[in-house]
């Protein structure tokens, strides 16, 4: 177990290094640099600026400097925002994105498991048909459409109530977080519901369930201890990749709900070629995803004793 964890962690670090390297060289291959702007700059000033930011050195040397700084946790200073440290920028905005993403995944996982189990138990009856229809809808509708309609219904709700129960946009309080995370989690929830349904259907009439029923166990106990626990495993495996999908959708939801997350920030940084911000954001996102997947794999080993980790 420990060996496995250490091995996966080392792999994770190597992956993050690869992400950093790929980003670094892809970013520097884009024509232009962060010092190019609308303002006319004399060659002397430009040379000074380049020397200040170290852009005059060979690319490999820049790469090496960046890597050693990154290893000590320093992502450098932003090019376009004077003297602002990337660490500060990330600390401020990543917190928001991560909160949104985690809320969404929690909502998606609980919802998916619950609805999936319900559909399987009520197979081919009204609840099943309704939920399966909603699931197909949830998988097929892009998240920005959900976001738009989510926002619209919040407007209508507030209008109808006569006061602001849930804010339409922005970030800060718990009320701000509810609608965006619901919207963000919806697609993933639909996907997880589908998965849970098919895995539950395999288990509903399994031998061990029949045995449990023959022993006279109450239905709720069979559901909790025998069916749910076994059916949940495939859902846990895909939670890792789902987190990636959620962060992707997060960009759009942040845009629609005017949430000060990293998404919009990143788009802006790419347009201005703010090297350090791009690097910091990508490496952090990448690391977040990689270690989430590892965490999910380790949890999977804990939940299912049949899975041998090595």
């Amino acid at each position: 177990m420990l060996r496995y964890t250490v091995k996966r962690l080392i792999q994770g670090v190597v992956t993050v290094w690869f992400i950093a390297t790929a980003t670094f060289f892809a970013m520097h291959a884009v024509p232009g640099d962060p010092l190019t702007s609308d303002k006319a700059v004399s060659p002397e000033i430009r040379a000074n600026l380049e020397a200040r930011y170290g852009l005059d050195r060979p690319l490999v040397e820049q790469y090496w400097i960046y890597l050693t700084n990154m290893a000590s946790g320093d992502f450098g200073i932003s090019f376009t925002q004077q003297n602002r440290e990337v660490n500060d920028i990330i600390a401020e905005h990543f917190k928001v994105s991560a909160t949104l993403g985690i809320l969404a995944i929690v909502f998606a996982a609980f919802g998916g498991i619950l609805w999936g189990a319900v559909t399987a138990l009520y197979r081919n009856r009204a609840p099943d048909i309704v939920i399966v229809f909603l699931v197909i809808l949830g998988i097929s509708v892009p998240s920005f459409v959900f976001a738009a309609f989510g926002q619209l219904s919040v407007v209508k709700l507030n209008d109808w109530l006569g006061f602001t129960l849930v804010p339409v946009a922005g970030w800060g309080t718990v009320q701000h977080m509810i609608v965006p995370s619901l919207v963000l989690g919806l697609g993933t929830m639909a996907f997880l519901t589908r998965l849970m349904r098919s895995s539950m259907l395999e288990i509903v009439n399994a031998d061990f369930v029949r045995t449990a029923r023959a022993k006279g166990l109450p239905a709720t106990r069979i559901f909790r201890k025998h069916q749910l626990r076994n059916a949940i495993l495939p859902v846990i495996t895909v939670l890792g990749p789902s987190i990636a999908a959620i962060t992707t959708g997060g960009f759009v939801v942040e845009l629609v709900f005017a949430i000060p997350g990293l998404g919009r920030y990143f788009v802006q940084a790419v347009q201005q070629l703010d090297y350090t911000v791009i690097m910091g954001t990508t490496v952090l996102y990448g690391a977040f995803l990689v270690f989430m997947v590892i965490a999910v794999d380790i949890v999977y080993g804990l939940v299912d004793p049949r899975v041998r980790l090595d």
Partner: peptide, 10 residues
């Protein structure tokens, strides 16, 4: 492992 959307944009 590359963050998909970030790299698409890049």
């Amino acid at each position: 492992a590359l963050p998909f959307l970030l790299f698409m944009i890049l």
